[in-house]
Amino acid sequence: MLSDTERQEIDSEIRHAPAKSAVAIDALKIVQRERGWISGDAIKDIARHLEMTPDELDGVATFYNRIFRKPVGRHVIEVCDSISCWVMGSDSIKDILARRLGVGEGGTTPDGRFTLLPVDCLGACHRAPAAVVDGELHGELDEAKLDEMLGELRAKEP
């Protein structure tokens, strides 16, 4: 079942679209923002609302890599591993995070708090290596900055 907020937001997208199915991606993003990821049930619920079949919606959902079809942690740490960040040492940034969190690339900590994901070029090449954490950009990363960042995240949610 879609929540009222989800439904309202999706409907407001539908209002300026020529067809309900045209807002498929917006709808997926709206629901993902609310729930963190898109479950199989979510696919069915959204599809029904857009008068699509689950097959149709999931064909779209699975195409895009920023639609998560698997659960993610409450905080998603996306480390850029594209060229400029890689030149500037993104591998070691990923290593440090993996060690600190105890999970590999794509993994989620057992407490469901953090998910570590690689991400394509964030358009922050001049501030490499860079990462996005919960939607906020962090540049010129090094070990100290990472620890500070993790500390802040942990502090937010003890």
Partner: peptide, 19 residues
């Protein structure tokens, strides 16, 4: 038909049903 589609992308595209 509406219960069949292509899923995913790049060299892992998949042709089948949602379930």
């Amino acid at each position: 038909g509406r219960d069949f589609n292509v899923f995913a992308s790049h060299d892992s595209v998949y042709f089948g049903r949602y379930e």
